[in-house]
Write a protein that binds this DNA or RNA. Sequence first.
DNA 1: TTGTTTGCAAACAATTTGCACCGAT
DNA 2: ATCGGTGCAAATTGTTTGCAAACAA
Lengths: 138, 138
Amino acid sequence: MESHDLRNAGLKVTLPRVKILQILEKQLNERHLTAEKVYKILLSENEEIGLATVYRVLTQFEAAGLVTRHHFEGGNSVFELATADHHDHIMCMKCGKVDEFTDHVIETRQKEIADRLGYELTDHGLYLYGFCPHCRKS
Amino acid sequence: MESHDLRNAGLKVTLPRVKILQILEKQLNERHLTAEKVYKILLSENEEIGLATVYRVLTQFEAAGLVTRHHFEGGNSVFELATADHHDHIMCMKCGKVDEFTDHVIETRQKEIADRLGYELTDHGLYLYGFCPHCRKS
DNA sequence: TTGTTTGCAAACAATTTGCACCGAT
DNA sequence: ATCGGTGCAAATTGTTTGCAAACAA
């Protein structure tokens, strides 16, 4: 039951929030969705939820730590269900596919660079762009 | 003379283009400017150049490889004069200061990750966010 | 009931574009 | 003279907000 997660996050349990959370959980692969896409899925399920609400709910989810927002190059914001582990992203320039990965060497290195430059690191984003296995061939 | 660079890039030599290129070259430190900022500098130099033109020219410069466009988290696009070497960025969340760095370990590692996932890497962006030496104290 | 949340339409900010005029070659 | 370049204002796009109605607790 996602009502639990919502209440846990200090959010009142409402239909839009439950529905949107379900949609995010339903995406086994393709975990990265734009607000627009979430909205379209809602429409396709005959839900009467406005796009503005989708944005509001996703923003609240982000504040609550339930989802993470990303700004991929050139595009709009995409949202993904938050996970315990930190990970970075690699995206296909042709089909938009997104894969995730974690690399401890890079993580450590980032910290060292920040230290060397005297920065107190709070966040970081690493995005690789290219052509995925499938799109390379064609 | 930047007229040379322009002609070289296949761009006709016009006042707005020369002026904007000069402004970019003038920024010794603070090499990263938004279109808006370039526009304001132009105004402060009493140039009659529209904001739309600034965007158009910067986009052309990008296409010509003269400048690089970045999308920092949350903010607008920033442009910097292209350099021979590749580098990444670390930005202060408080004052907006941007520092550049290069790290070969990370570069190599990125390539390896892409290979492992079967991607043909075309581009990448690494952005670190934190508090700069100056802003940490206050 | 009572403070939240939603839907809709209007507001916004950043960026792009249409078009008549201007300017470089 | 020609054709691309520019200014301005209007259009687009992605996202946010104001407000009255609907809703969860």
